[in-house]
Amino acid sequence: METIPRPSDSGSDGSQIRNEHPVDLIEANQLAELPIATTIQGIAASNTKAFGGEVASALVAGSFAQLASELQSSKTETAQLRKRIESLGEDLSNQKISNAILNERIRSSNQSRTLKNTGITLGTFLVTTSIAFFNSPTIGQGYGYAFLIVGAILVVAGWYAPKNGGEA
């Protein structure tokens, strides 16, 4: 197979958009129902004795026309159902993707919440401990400041850490 050339300048104006569902495409109606039915009708019309007489010819031709019509209706219905299935399949696929994204966000959110709660608890403990250090004559105030700063950072981080979320 030859390589299809890609023009350096396609000349496109860039206004085209993507069409996900080709709803504007309508299948053309076929003029004849089925070739075999047309053939049978033609034989019956031109040579009635071919099927055993006028009555039998009309009956055979009519039966074929009826069957052909029903077959055509079934084909049309099948085509419509096939399109519907394709559309539903696409919807299902999109929903699965959305579901997977949301599940991942829920899992991530749970982990994040646990981490934030731990940070707030630990921060509160450090702040409380720092007050005890300030009041203690034996332990230096340097430890008190260190515990206070680290504890405050943990508490504030636990409060204002960004949440995971948004649209799927």
Binding site: P5, P7, S10, G11, S12, D13, G14, S15, Q16
Partner: peptide
Amino acid sequence: ILYTGKGTPKTEKWEPTGSNVYT
């Protein structure tokens, strides 16, 4: 090359063969 969108027709040379590419 028939693009399905809108645009302006172009003609250029296809280097490998020297033939024309009509867009």
